[in-house]
């Protein structure tokens, strides 16, 4: 071995190990669930005896699929509305005078900080007072209120940092305000809108406490269903469902990356070796 080989410093080793440990911590539980979904044992006993019976059960006798479908549909609607409202609020706010703008912006930060549990209880009080109580509309409004600030924040920061001149150029070329929005503004803010929409979707899918308080009796979202099932013991068909969801998520992330919407584009995180 050549003697002038660069010495590997202790710090470097430390950080490499640290990163590996972090990744293991993040991904091991997911890997575990995937493995267990193919395991015959109900209680996750090793060694793994391969089976697909849980998948069969999931698609035949399990009650999880209905709840999962409802959660998906519900989150889709909420997140789409949240994305649209986020765009509208961002564009409106851009035209506001700076002081009003700051006030509104701060107000939008508050729901991000308030625990969902508190928000859920207060919303239930409000909806009961208004007379809609626990119902699909109140669950819809509740989840929307919880996720909207996220899509707003992402879209708004893009709107405020984007170059305003292409829009003006569009106007001078004869485009109406609507045409400018359709052809120029929307395309320029699209990555942020997409990120905001994804974020709202995931958050809405997950916001158990709001759903638990606001859902009408007899309606179960997936988190609520799992919550009730898990109290009567582990059910491997949940692992099967989780595996499918992880699979879909990975597919979406891969596709987004392929069509040019990596984390750098969506969330503005810098990517190495690339300049603006």
């Amino acid at each position: 071995m050549p003697k002038n080989r660069r010495k590997i410093s202790g710090t470097r080793v430390f950080f490499t190990v640290w990163i590996i440990l972090t990744m293991v911590f993040l991904f091991f539980p997911i890997a575990q669930i995937i493995l267990m979904s193919f395991n015959t044992s109900v209680y996750g006993r090793l060694p793994i005896v391969f089976t697909t019976q849980w998948y069969v059960k999931l698609f035949t006798t399990s009650k999880l699929l209905g709840a999962a479908g409802f959660s998906l549909g519900f989150s889709l609607v909420v997140s789409l509305v949240s994305a649209v409202l986020g765009i509208m609020a961002s564009l409106a706010l851009r035209k506001f005078p700076t002081r009003l703008n700051n006030i509104f912006n701060t107000l939008m930060d508050v729901p991000l900080m308030i625990p969902w549990l508190v928000q859920a209880v207060s919303l239930l009080l409000l909806f009961s007072f208004v007379g809609i109580g626990r119902s699909i509309p109140s669950m819809f409004l509740g989840c929307l209120a919880a996720v909207m600030p996220h899509s707003f924040m992402l879209t708004y920061s893009r709107v405020m940092t984007m170059d305003p001149y292409p829009e003006e150029a569009g106007r001078t070329l004869g485009a109406t305000p609507f045409q400018v929005f359709r052809d120029i503004t929307f395309r320029m803010i699209f990555p942020a809108v997409l990120a905001g929409w994804l974020m709202s979707f995931v958050l809405c899918f997950n916001c158990f406490s709001l759903q638990y308080y606001l859902a009408p009796f007899g309606t179960y979202t997936l988190p609520m269903k799992i919550f009730t099932l898990i109290r009567s013991g582990s059910k491997p068909d949940m692992n099967a469902l989780a595996t499918i969801m992880v699979g879909i998520t990975f597919a979406i992330i891969l596709i987004l990356n392929k069509i040019g919407f990596g984390a750098d584009q969506l969330f503005g995180a810098p990517r190495r070796g690339e300049k603006e």
């Binding site: 170059d163 001149y165 292409p166 150029a169 120029i184």
Partner: peptide
């Protein structure tokens, strides 16, 4: 425009 203002 000064900074071209092309549609990116």
């Amino acid at each position: 425009f000064q900074n071209y203002a092309l549609i990116p």
